[in-house]
């Protein structure tokens, strides 16, 4: 006569649990499946054209033959250039917002605005970049203009992740440092930042992924339709992988003939992003370890 056993209720409860569990599992498997599908599709379609020559030579014959070297170099330039702008500025404003700023309307306003900034469509950034950097400041279609535009685009991401990374550091560490006679700046530099750095790098990873894949912001600011030479200064135009992909797929001279090149380009773009992420992850792990034993 145990009151703990109610077979009917128990069976029903278990069935519900079981179904819920399977639904969750199927959903997450579906996500993985889609990712694997995309990757597999690109590898199958693109691997045929990806070889050393493809990676290291100029496009030829109306972009139906040859390689994509200028687009690879262009994208790398834009990633590096945009990070040079966005990373220091973003990290510094993140530090200001979280460590220095008083909790007043101005700071709330800054926070709201940075959040809004990240929801602006990237084509709008492109137009803004063209108006400001290309025309008003006279940089022309150039790596500089494109990097600045992309930098603006990812600035909110860097600021937010920096803020979150700093927020995660327990105040007791700050107090301990201040109580030893350290200044606020010393506390931030020697205690808070080293602890937060691995997570700040996450912001870097996210931004790099975003920057290397964006097409709209570079459309009017830097990207060249066809430019079979490498840039020699930051005022040069460059080709870039995402835009090159768009051109090959929609407006090349012979779309059918350049289709394999398009798949190859997509594959290379994904591999580059993957490689940069791995690198950043390594950096993150290395910093994490350094902080603990330093």
């Amino acid at each position: 006569m145990s009151t703990l056993i109610n077979t009917k209720y128990d069976r029903r409860k278990r069935r519900t649990q079981g179904i819920a569990f399977w639904v969750f599992r199927l959903m997450s498997l579906a996500v993985v499946a889609i990712l694997v599908w995309i990757l597999g599709f690109l590898v199958v379609k693109g691997i045929g054209v990806v070889n050393w020559e493809f990676l290291t030579s100029m496009p030829e014959d109306g972009m139906t033959k040859g390689g994509i070297l200028p687009a690879i170099v262009g994208t790398l330039c834009l990633v590096a250039g945009s990070m040079v702008f966005a990373f220091p500025i973003g990290v510094m404003s993140g530090i200001y917002i979280n460590e220095y700023a008083p909790n007043n309307w101005l700071v709330k306003f800054i926070r709201v605005m940075t959040n809004n900034l990240s929801s602006i469509p990237s084509i709008v950034f492109g137009l803004f970049g063209m108006a400001l950097f290309v025309n008003t400041l006279g940089f022309g279609d150039s790596i500089l203009a494109g990097s600045l535009t992309l930098g603006l685009l990812v600035l909110p991401v860097v600021i937010r992740t920096t803020e979150e990374a700093l927020k995660a550091i327990d105040n007791s560490y700050r107090n301990a440092s201040l109580a030893l006679g350290a200044t606020k700046l010393q506390t931030i530099r020697k205690v808070v930042l080293p602890m937060a750095f691995p997570n700040i790098i996450t912001g870097l990873i996210l931004s790099v992924g975003r920057v290397s894949g964006e097409t709209a912001p570079i459309l009017f600011t830097v990207a060249a339709y066809f430019l079979p030479k490498l840039p020699t200064s930051i005022f040069d135009q460059v080709m870039a992988l995402p835009y090159h992909l768009y051109v090959l797929a929609t407006s090349g001279t012979d779309i059918q003939a350049s289709r394999p090149m398009a798949y190859g380009t997509a594959l290379v773009l994904i591999l580059i992003v993957l490689l940069i992420n791995l690198l950043a992850n390594g950096l993150r792990a290395w910093f994490g370890k350094k902080v603990k034993t330093n």
Partner: peptide, 24 residues
């Protein structure tokens, strides 16, 4: 000087924890 409720050593070595106050 101050000692807090919860032990809060820095994520550094034992040596660097003590040296911190001198270094800053």
């Amino acid at each position: 000087g101050m000692v807090f409720q919860k032990p809060n050593p820095f994520p550094k070595t034992i040596f660097e924890n003590i040296a911190y106050g001198l270094r800053v």
